[in-house]
Amino acid sequence: MAATPTIADLRQRVQRMQGAAVSRLLPVLPGLGQLIDLQTGMVCCLDSPGLAMSLMAGPSQAGEWTAVVGVPEFGFDAAFAFGVDLGRCVVVPEPGEHWLSVTAGLVEVATLVLIRPPAPVNEQQAARMIARLRQKDAALLVDCAQLGDRAWPRPQRRLSVIDNQWSGLGRGHGHLQGRRVRVRSRGGGVPDRTVDLWLPDQHLEVRLDYTGGGDHTGGGDYTGGRDHAGVDAFDGQVAG
């Protein structure tokens, strides 16, 4: 719930109590607003844990509960650095065969749930989950790094990292400092968008990258050029 409920919020809450499926906009970190309108009742597929953590950070900082299902290697330290409130985060690293019912259970208590399905979800299961998300006023992030597009049929939004550059690391010296990513956002009946982001920058903040693929300002020593032919090849690899 937002800290100061407005009339519209309260009206939505009343409608939800009456059983109507109403979605509300979840707060996201400032840099991610251009990427996605995160709403309750939606399913969003993404392929980067860092992106998932930064999406979880916004609602978590606003006081919402978050949950992570089936991601045993979820880095708590990184999530904490992205701004996820770990005190309001429930993690089920290995749900086993009950992963779908565990997710359904967590949707009741958490507003944003990140899952990694061990097997592709069929249409029927997806439809039931959508209905549940709308009813319980929650959103689902699906980590499809392993299964690709098959993981979830027709999600409302699909985020994929199409380019990825680390700065700060040389050949034998320096250390990883900042990461610049180009994220493509597709689906949901709105035009595709491509956004350049620092995920995170040297100050561990997530923000938009306005340099637009020019020179690296991150103090790094390696200069990997960003040619779009390479990007397309990488994109094809993810999609296939």
Partner: peptide, 21 residues
Amino acid sequence: QVERGVARLQGMLGPEAVIAP
């Protein structure tokens, strides 16, 4: 509500399966 929901999950999966990061 969260406590109750998590307790249900623990009943399903066992108490150690649900963790607080």
